[in-house]
Design a protein around this nucleic acid. Structure first.
Lengths: 215, 215
DNA sequence: ATAATACCCGACTAAATAGTCGGGGTCAAT
DNA sequence: ATTGACCCCGACTATTTAGTCGGGTATTAT
């Protein structure tokens, strides 16, 4: 068997690693893998790990404890993503709400908590960004970050409200403000002032059943 | 300073741990934390870890390498969840597609890959479940799992297709099948047979701009 | 003044952990 | 028959890693 395939035993170990990480938040040691795989020799584990690594299912940091990463190919071969080809035409994710309203979701809460910092969806209300292709009721994907460039569509906290606008910053003359994308004069620019905070960048918008990137 | 507060140094270490996990997928060792915190003694790290632990910001597995978990309170104190109160009225998540189409997302790919196994969204095509409140074009949240109860709305793989139906299993007399929720007789029950596989439970459906749970 | 708290040092020990060495058995392909 | 891939054993070593010991300083509250 060559590259690209996986044997039963290799898959068993990969699955053990996957489950261990899922349950404890960090990867297993050799000892723990030996126990779970029901073998007594370190060499057995190493043999399998080396093969998993050669096929790009995992990555290891040598001489370092608990340092296995499962790579995308690894998740794929574990059949943990059986729907991906089907999902190709759709989209996927984890609504924070669904996770927080029910105790049923505790087991994934640590991963979700970590993920929540990175990206989240948001429902838009208002029409101040229609020229950027973001309409009332649309859902947008926001990536939480700290550095922004002029021209980014951002999610900002202004006083007690959150708003999505285009962020403009120019040095000459120096000015910084948030700009609505709607020609109607009732939408005014918001000068950047103390207490305002940029929360994240708006990456894409869900429209007509699919995701489009925001420019 | 008592329980519930956090000092500057403690927060620095917590932040170091957070970033390390985010970047490598597993927690740091004492040595790595010493380096990042710029101290030379293990005791410095232990002092801080013990205090973080007492305040329920982290959990450790004693005598075990790289075994720090950041607890929900820890994420909170790190101010990594600034939008949660606001998001309360909306929904959030990480579209798999958005992550895979752009190189920009590599840094979160390992978390996302892990999460993808747990929950994902799916766009429904067909009207076989309209009586369960799931219509053509709706987006549903599916939780990947292995145990199901009779009555659950499930995502099943039947031959080469995936379908969402209600799963029925009864002991007396013994029968197991998938049931459409549409009175039109063109939708027939699907008897459970070899090769069929239940992939996950349909938890909620996105409709009229908000998530509703599926019953 | 004294005590308590937070943070730190450097040298040390004990345990956990990854990795090595030199084998062996099975199975399928050549 | 022989080879190679795959998986395994048991004893071993080297390194990494957590934790200990006995201190110290600066700051703040009592």
């Amino acid at each position: 068997m060559g590259k690209g395939t996986i044997t039963k035993r290799q898959k068993e170990l990969l699955s053990i690693i996957y489950n261990y990480i899922k349950n404890s938040g960090y990867p297993p040691t050799f000892e723990e893998m030996k126990e779970d795989l029901n073998v007594s020799s370190n060499q057995s584990i190493i043999d399998l790990l080396v093969k998993l690594e050669k096929q790009d299912f995992i990555k290891r940091n040598e001489s370092s404890a608990r340092s296995i990463n499962i790579l995308p190919l690894g998740y794929k071969v574990l059949n943990k993503l059986p729907l991906i080809p089907f999902l190709g035409a759709t989209s996927a994710g984890a609504p924070i709400e669904a996770i927080e309203i029910s105790g049923e979701w505790q087991s994934v809460s640590s991963e979700v908590a970590r993920l929540k910092d990175e990206v989240f969806l948001l429902k838009i209300s208002g029409d101040s960004m229609i020229n950027a292709g973001i309409d009332d009721g649309d859902m947008v994907l926001v990536k939480s970050q700290k550095e922004f460039f002029s021209g980014d569509v951002v999610l900002a906290n202004v006083k007690d409200e959150s708003t999505v606008k285009r962020f403009i910053s120019d040095d000459n003359p120096p000015y910084v403000y948030l700009k609505p994308e709607n020609p109607d004069p009732k939408h005014k620019v918001i000068l950047f002032e103390d207490g305002m905070r940029l929360v994240g960048k708006v990456i894409s918008v869900f429209k007509n059943g699919q995701w489009k990137s925001v420019k």
